Structures are given as structure tokens and as C-alpha cells.
Amino acid sequence: MATTQSTNLAQDGLAKRSMRDIARARLPDGKPDGRIADDKAMLRAARELTKDLGEANPRIYWPDMLACVIIGYGAMVGAILVENVWAALGLAAISVLAIYRALMFIHELSHIHRNALPGFRTAWNWLVGVPMLTPSFMYEGVHTLHHNRTRYGTKEDPEYLPLARMKWWSLPLFVLIALLAPPALLLRFAVLNPLSLVVPKLREIVWQRFSALSINPDFRRRPPEGDLKPRVLKQEVGGTLWSWALLASIALLGWKPFLVALAIFSTVAVFNQVRTLVAHLWENEGEPMTVTAQYLDSVNVPPPSPMAAIWAPVGLRYHALHHLMPSMPYHSLGEAHRRLKANLEADSTYHGANHPGLRPLVIRLSRATMSRRA
């Protein structure tokens, strides 16, 4: 198979240039070259070697998600009830990790076919999305724009900022601002959502600017269409009623349960923001990029990195591979990676997006921003 792939490289006109050189390609001003020719051999291998891995398995999705919900909420209740501080902190840590993993299934919901897992989307929303005030409508129809071949890395991409080319203080600010996400979502659903029903202009603002899980401050969301519209209505009503219940619980149960839950949700948001920080290299400045250039700007952290499955759960450790095959279910990405790694030559472009771990990625990004302190 490796010989076949090498032959294909030559046929595609890419063998004359090392894939490692392509991975490092830069324009004269130091920017990444988004015009890198697509590595057709890699793209073909990704398609042909993984044909049998595209079906979402309900026997994996359901137990995984439900176990995270039970452990996450159970540990949260324990953190609220126990008197020992260290025991409470330990239970809170368990709750953070479990709820974080449960929340990351929203990424799967934005890609899997609506008929692939009957009932899973609804169950996830009422068990995770609405209680976390991040129902799936806030990602559906948004995240797929990030995968659009002509929008990735441009000003029309809701999930892209050229962080590597921004000032040094942008990185800590990017992470710390996530602490405000839970209070902001509470404000959005408890106050702005019902108020916008009687103030049409406010409704337009709420939808365009506060109804998408995006990091691009210039992104404005378009009105929902098709079967998304009724789902938005149900999930917004659910979010508003739940947010009112949370606020009412302060009068009934006191501040401790509310504050503990808020602290756990805020920590989950920070975890996700750190993962987002290293999901890409963030080196593009708005120019359209080829699929191969997009892949190389994205990040895989495959085994043997021991912690990646924790800070990048539900397949997100294979984020670059996910950009090659967006509809592949999370439980198949590990096997897909093993097949591609085994069948593609050592100088294949595929290996250019594989990184050893979180720390080297943070250091790389930090160095890039520090070089712009002047």
C-alpha cells in the first residue's frame, strides 16, 4: 500500500517536493501559504482507507454520553452536599471532567446525519444542552461553516481567529474570558431571550450575536431555516425555563448549590477554551486556503500523548483528521489515524499535522505571539 501511495504522489505531481517542505511553506512575509497544492494522494487515501468507518454506532454513543451525565451530575451533587473541602474539590474535579466530555457531544451533533442516532439529539439537549444553557442550536448551522472549504480561516469563519499573529496578551485573555460564559448564557436565556420577544430589534441582536458558539467577534448569524427553526423554539423555551429555575433555586436552597454549579460550569468552559486554543495553529490571516493547507493549520495529538483523551475528548484529539473527514464518528477516528499512519509514507503531508501534546502547542503559540510584542 505504501508503494501505491508513493506512485500516486508522483502521478499527482507532488513527489518533486517533500511533504515536510509543504508543511512548512511560507510566503515571503512569513505567513503560511494557503495556496499549498492539495495533496491528492493523502486525500484519496483518507477516503479509500476509511470507507468502512463512517457509521455512527449507537452502542458507543448512548452509554458514553449517559455515563458522563450520571457521573457528572452525581459528582456535582456530592460536591454540593459534602462538608469536607478536599472531598468537595475532588468531586467537583470529577464533575468537571465528566460534564466536559458530555458537553463535547455537541460537536458530534453538528455532523452526524439527523437519522443516524434516533432520539440521541433530543436526549442530549434535555440532559446536557439545556441544563448547560448550550442547546445544540447554538452549534448546528454554525460549526459547519467552519468546515466550508472557502470560509475556513477567513472573516466568514465563526470559529477562527489568527491568534498566532495577535499580541501576546490575547492568549490569556482568550482563555480567561471563558469564565464569563456561564453568567453570559444565564443572562442570554433568563433576561434577553424573553425580553426580545417584545422588542423585535433586540431579538435580531440576540440571534445574530448571542446565539452561536463562535470565537470570531465579527460573525453575525443568519436567521434559522428549515427544520432548525422549530428546534430553536423548543430549545430556547427550555433554556429560559431552566435559567429561571436556577435563579429561583437560590431562594429555595441558598447560594451554595448555585455557586458550586456555576464554578463547575465555568471550569468546563475554561477547559474547552484551552482545547480550542490548540485545535489549530491559527496562522492564517483571512486568505482562502486549500484543503491541505487547512489540514496543516489544524492539529492532531495522537497516542502516545497520555492526557489528550482528557483535554480533547470525544475524538477531538484528532481535530486535523476530522477536517479531512468531518462526518466520521468520533469512535472511528483513532482507527482511521492508525490506518493512514501505517499506509502513508514518512514524508506524507499527513504527518505534518500530528503534534506531541498540549504543552508544545501552547509554547509554539505563545512564542508566535511574543514575537509580536513590539
Rank of each mutant, 00 (worst) to 15 (best):
L109T: 14
V142F: 05
L14I: 11
R188C: 11
L321C: 11
L163P: 01
L361V: 08
H280A: 07
K31M: 04
R149N: 03
V199K: 06
L133Q: 14
S243L: 04
L253C: 07
A251E: 02
T369A: 04
A93W: 14
L9F: 11
W242Y: 07
A164Q: 09
N125D: 15
V82E: 10
E156V: 05
P172K: 01
K256N: 03
M42V: 08
R372C: 13
I71V: 11
S214M: 08
L53M: 07
T267H: 00
I70V: 13
W86A: 12
V175Q: 03
P194V: 04
W169C: 06
L296V: 01
L89Q: 02
P158S: 08
F137W: 11
T154M: 14
P131W: 07
P302L: 14
I36C: 04
A346D: 13
A293G: 05
A98C: 07
E156C: 09
R220T: 02
N284H: 12
T267Y: 00
G34S: 08
F189M: 15
F105D: 02
I310Y: 14
I36T: 01
E287V: 12
D21V: 13
W126Y: 09
V69S: 07
Q294P: 03
A308H: 10
V278R: 06
R231Y: 08
I205T: 12
A181Q: 10
H113W: 09
F271C: 10
G119A: 06
H323V: 05
H323Y: 05
R231N: 06
N57R: 07
L187T: 11
F271H: 05
L176H: 00
M1S: 12
R317H: 15
P217Y: 01
K201N: 14
L195F: 12
T154D: 13
Y318M: 02
T154E: 13
P306V: 07
N148H: 14
F265Q: 08
V199T: 15
M19Y: 15
L180N: 02
G74T: 02
V274T: 10
